[in-house]
């Protein structure tokens, strides 16, 4: 395999790997309230997340910022908790989208630091950081888009069979995210 291929695969696997599902669950939380007709909102949301995590991943890869790893691994479940609470608190109501975009961008910054913890471990002195970073980030984006599409398909299937249970679906999904995040947070805090 070329090293580009390997870093790309590692990027994809970093999101899809069931050993660490925090990023996957976050994407689930972002996409949970929306349907295909909301695609514009979803594109902005996913882009906000992408811009956020790309910025901090790059800054950290080039050693411009350095943040305590444990702090980041603790903050990530907190971003999940807050996203789930925002979705739950406003179930069925209109969200203030500008605020949500900003929040997801900010949370993207935190997840990018999480990605960089893994990415930096892959690097050694003779590594070509720029091309590795590009391939790894591209892998993350591809995995992210795959997850959003799968969630949208599940959502539409749900709507097809249970068109009147929108609220129930959002509560069910975000409740799941909430409790997973709580478990991750406890793990991050107590398994050092």
């Amino acid at each position: 395999m070329s090293s580009f291929g390997m870093y790309f695969e590692l990027g994809v696997m970093h999101i899809l790997d069931l050993e660490g599902i925090d990023h996957l669950v976050f994407i689930l939380a972002i996409a949970a309230p929306y349907r295909f007709i909301d695609w514009k909102k979803l594109i902005i949301l996913v882009s906000a997340f992408t811009v956020g995590h790309s910025v901090t991943l790059a800054l950290s890869a080039f050693d411009i910022v350095r943040i305590n790893e444990d702090l980041v691994e603790t903050l990530i479940p907190i971003t999940l908790l807050i996203t789930a609470m925002v979705n739950l608190g406003k179930t069925g109501q209109k969200l203030n989208m500008k605020l949500v975009y900003l929040l997801i961008f900010f949370f993207g910054l935190i997840h990018g630091l999480g990605f960089s913890n893994f990415f930096n471990a892959l690097m050694s002195e003779s590594s070509e950081v720029t091309s590795a970073l590009f391939a790894f980030n591209l892998g993350i984006e591809v995995a992210q888009i795959m997850i959003v599409l799968i969630i949208l398909i599940i959502t539409e299937l749900f709507n097809f069979f249970k068109p009147k249970s929108q609220k129930m679906r959002i509560i069910f999904l975000n409740g799941g995210v909430f409790f997973l995040a709580l478990q991750m947070l406890f793990e991050a805090l107590f398994t050092i």
Binding site: N68, E69, D70, L71, N117, F118, A121, M123, S127, L189
Partner: peptide
């Protein structure tokens, strides 16, 4: 959030990912 931040900062610095690199 404040409590968690304080707890985290006071914790040891164990890295979370397990990777080796061979050239």
């Amino acid at each position: 959030v404040t409590a968690i931040l304080l707890m985290t900062v006071s914790m040891s610095n164990a890295h979370t990912f397990h990777v080796s690199v061979a050239q």
